[in-house]
């Protein structure tokens, strides 16, 4: 693991268990001490959704594997790359994550499906590709005092 401060990049590799994901998130957030609390919270949320998707869907609870995470600080924000060797996305594309309309009936309230909505809403340039046996998801988060409009 390389600290992002100074070099501008952070690389982590960890198993696809919920507790390993949690530790990875804590490492990233600790590395972002220079950002304000809300920005760090937003990064943690988007990363949590993306990494939980890998753990729960690409691998699944019965099929653990490795997740690799790269974070690079650039002028237009933080760039993330997540790679795994789990199952590909259904139909080979990342979900659009449209917000579901709120139903009138309590029983129909959604308990899931918010993950991709949050990723799409809070990040930019989301790109998913399958390269051989590897899933790669990249996205950018416009934080850290970057100029508006970038």
């Amino acid at each position: 693991m390389k600290a992002m401060t100074g070099s501008g990049t952070l690389h982590l590799t960890f198993p696809s268990s919920p507790l390993s994901v949690r530790r990875a998130l804590q490492t990233v957030v600790t590395d972002l001490q220079g950002f304000d609390l809300e920005e760090r919270g937003t990064v943690e949320l988007v990363l949590a959704e993306a990494l939980n998707n890998v753990a729960e869907h690409a691998y699944g609870a019965e099929d653990r594997g490795w997740i690799s995470l790269d974070c690079t600080k650039e002028r237009d924000g933080l760039h993330f790359r997540i790679r795994d060797e789990g199952r590909p996305m259904p139909d080979g594309v990342a979900p659009m994550g449209d917000p579901a309309p709120l139903p009138e009936a309590l029983e129909a309230m959604p308990e899931g499906g918010f993950g991709w909505f949050l990723i799409r809403d809070l990040s930019r340039d989301v790109c998913y590709s399958r390269q051989g046996d590897v899933n790669e998801l990249t996205f950018r988060m416009r934080i850290g005092g970057t100029e508006a409009g970038l």
Partner: peptide
């Protein structure tokens, strides 16, 4: 609580249901 993700949110919705 200082962090909640969509799984946690889903668990609160499920608790309400």
């Amino acid at each position: 609580v200082d962090f909640i993700d969509s799984s946690g949110l889903g668990a609160i919705v499920a608790s309400m249901k």
